[in-house]
Amino acid sequence: MGAGMDMHADMDAHMDMDMDMPMPGGIPLASGGPDRDGLEMDVLHVALGPVLPHWPAGLVVRCALKGDVIVHAEVEILPAAPGTALDNPARVGRLPSADDDRRRTVIHHSDAAVQLLALVGWWSAAGRARRIRDEVASGTALAEVAPRLERLAKDVKRSRLLGWGLKGIAADTGPGVQRAGNGDAATARTRLLHWLNEAGRIARDTADSYEPLDFADRQRESLGAIPSLVNGTDVASARLIIASLAIDTSALTTSGEARS
């Protein structure tokens, strides 16, 4: 059947195709380009974001796709409206208190874990992380959630299916950033474990030994690393990589830097 297609006869018409060819739905034809497997593939331009489930709100990654493989990516953060009290869930309806920063860190870490666990389709674990996050945000004592965070971290660490699914999903944004304990390059899995362990530790300790949350710089670094990290990966892996960077777009938009 393939030979039945009158492609060659149409080649002469190819030149004026751009003008004459009807564009279905007003969508122009894709242009082609060589693929990593030696084929010529259509190049499709798809923007990931600014709104997707389990995606940093306002982040836009403009991708050029061949098949579902990203061959080029540009990152942008849409400017946000000025922040409100809602941006800091720990502070809603209450006066600022001493453990707000700890609370904010726990929320941020468990939130990041929710996104990644949901993306890998482990709904029960994602649900547990979300409940912890919501309870911390609505004022439950941190000491109460600490054992649950530790249990979740243990389950995540023990899951061989998760380890296998996330194997090779790199999330190393550069030197000196959130390395795993043994000095290996950060992967999505080590990041996930790091968040859960950190959140558990911070929730348990009353001393001020937690990591401070001034991460606008680090966030910018993560953002800048996205194009090189997602280049050559498929869309799904790219989603996992971006989720494992735990980008907090509000930290970036309020600090004035919108584009990278």
Binding site: A3, G4, M5, D6, A9, D10, M21, P24, G25
Partner: peptide, 9 residues
């Protein structure tokens, strides 16, 4: 897939 094209040859 979207372009009208001649299927005969």
């Amino acid at each position: 897939a979207l372009m009208p094209m001649s299927m005969v040859h």
